[in-house]
Design a binder for these strands. Structure first.
Lengths: 343, 343
DNA sequence: ATAAAAACTTGACGCGCGCAAATATTTTTT
DNA sequence: AAAAAATATTTGCGCGCGTCAAGTTTTTAT
């Protein structure tokens, strides 16, 4: 850069020898101008570092280049991981992702959507709280803003849903556990925050029954998103009282299992599939930490990559093709069994 | 709300019976108008839901109400936790926090700052990558935008630094380990991403020497932010070869320790302070998961609350009092030993 | 009650850019 | 080489709000 700072587009237009509307066109879509002029603009851009005022840009544009990403609980590395992938793809497509976490609170989720609305985003990728969500508020939001739900479905809300196939998770875990040992009981929260948990329980029951086995569900108390703590406390109660009749436990998700394993360790119960072990534990999600539990956790993995990619693709499609209200799409990706040492 | 939608401030001014400049004043600071008019405005606000266009607002304002929060690696729950606290306090103070993660990449960190600059934020709270940061780029950014560094210091950069006192961490862990058993060796990454790691090693050496003990540092290879994996792989090498002369290991941070404990478990080494255990392991940070390791991890905790509060306070002060270049403040909070079962 | 201060109103300009219509230029096609 | 198509340019308005100056009203202080 040479000279003094350029303060607006008109000035930049004059020093670069191109008209302002063309410059404007360039910034809205560099590919929309002739190659020769694009090169001239970019040359000038090198020399005088000018950047359009995003506020002035967005004021008159009907939609901005912002994409909102909303997750229910960012302290869960699962969401951090998927948010990272989504961010990357949005940036690559020329959008500006903005990340929000509801931190488990309905009030915050609503106020995030409220703020998001006034940001006039091109689209929103929303993983709702689930049971704790204010369905009406989200429905209203989705009417105004192109929104793709992911991870956790609110039936009928939003233009599309992308997630993992809970039935596929449970099929793989239950079938593996049954054929490699004994049938599992199912360990979960009594009032799960997330609709996936309900689907997993239902899948567990139906799969067990279809195999001619008796399902048994252990429900532990606890509210909120501190799943490890809830799993730990619940497991301590179950294990210490010797109430566990099964030697195989399938936890609804990895975070509960992390707590369960901590409780088992503390109780002196050896978990694993080798001889000498007292019990086996498996779960679902392939949480980033489940590789480092003791013992390492046998689990069923989301196809993170596919879910994040397809969520973004769906949103992009929605953004430039628009949406007819009556074709809400749902896409579920199958899961993959990850054999480790806990089961 | 009744009637049809209000589309701009002039319209809202006329329906509410107040002049537009006063309405404008109200939105910039509700306390700056007379109580009686504030009540009238808020009554009208109830009836016609109008919200000023934030883009038009920010276009002419020199500074916005946005506060940028930048962390190096959001997948680390430590940062998620601190970001949550900071967000909350910003919202309560009437600002709009926006969260960014560099995901461990210098390129991303730079481009975040670049985008942030054009958002004209009132201020920025930045936890830099550390060694991987582009110091010059951050320095330049800090000259334009009021910035408080937290967690990880780049000396001389930014208007202030707020973090934890690494010496305090190590004093507590080493003194405890020495008096309750035998002196620890120090387990760390060879080329740590974070300057805190260096300070901890230096503190370890100086504390050991001041106690008349011989420090021993074990450095393990590995790049990036996958600390658990690095700790695991490093521990496997050390433990399997029986190279470990000490029965007490102090890990530079909890995430390394999580990997270390997984390796110890896999190797059949029993960790803890009870009789029958082969070794003790302790670490630093009080990572949210360290309560659920097997055994639960004895560690030294950040004062999360103090660090996040004081970071925000410092920034708010900076925002309304301005900053004389020559009084960069540094504030370090002491740490607190958390006794669990691993040491 | 009166003066001073504080808050409000009116009117008007500016910010930086989007966008549209009419015209001019370049590139592509035949 | 001429016609058609694509792309640029010029001109100028509009967006919604910040902000200022001058005048008016309301509140507070004396």
């Amino acid at each position: 850069m040479s000279q003094s700072k350029i303060k607006n587009m008109a000035e930049f237009a004059s020093v670069s020898g191109i008209s302002r509307p063309t410059i404007s066109k360039y910034f809205n879509n560099p590919g929309s101008v002739r190659d020769s002029t694009r090169i001239r603009i970019e040359a000038a851009l090198e020399e005088y570092d000018y950047r359009p005022n995003i506020y002035a840009m967005n004021q008159n544009r009907r939609l901005t280049k912002t994409i909102g990403i909303v997750v229910p609980f960012l302290a869960d590395p699962f969401f951090t991981e998927i948010a990272r992938k989504i961010e990357r793809r949005c940036i690559d497509a020329g959008f500006s992702p903005t990340l929000f976490s509801a931190h488990g609170s309905q009030e915050l989720e609503n106020s995030i959507l409220d703020n998001l609305r006034s940001l006039k985003p091109a689209g929103v990728l929303l993983a709702p709280l689930g049971r704790a969500s204010d369905r009406a508020a989200i429905e209203k939001f989705c009417r105004d803003v192109p929104t793709v739900l992911f991870d956790s479905d609110l039936e009928g809300v939003g233009a599309a849903f992308v997630g993992s196939d809970n039935h596929s998770f449970v099929t793989q875990s239950v079938e593996y556990l049954v054929r490699s040992g004994s049938p599992p009981c199912f360990f979960e929260m009594r009032t799960p925050a997330n609709p996936n948990a309900n689907k997993r329980r239902i899948a567990y029951i139906s799969i067990m029954e279809s195999m001619g086995l008796t399902p048994e569900v252990i429900k532990v108390d606890g509210e909120g998103w501190a799943f490890e703590e809830i799993g730990y406390a619940g497991a301590m109660r179950v294990l210490s009282k010797g109430k566990l009749k099964h030697d195989t436990v399938l936890c609804s998700n990895d975070r509960l299992a992390i707590g369960f394993l901590a409780a088992a360790y503390e109780t002196g119960l050896r978990v694993g599939r080798e001889p000498g072990c007292h019990m086996r534990v498996a779960a679902h999600d392939d949480h980033p930490f489940s590789r480092f539990t003791c013992p390492s956790l046998t689990t069923v993995a989301h196809d993170y990559e596919a879910v994040s990619n397809h969520s973004v693709e769906t949103l992009f499609n929605l953004i430039d093709k628009g949406h007819d209200d009556n074709d809400r799409t749902e896409r579920l990706f199958p899961a993959r069994l990850i054999l480790r040492t806990s089961a």
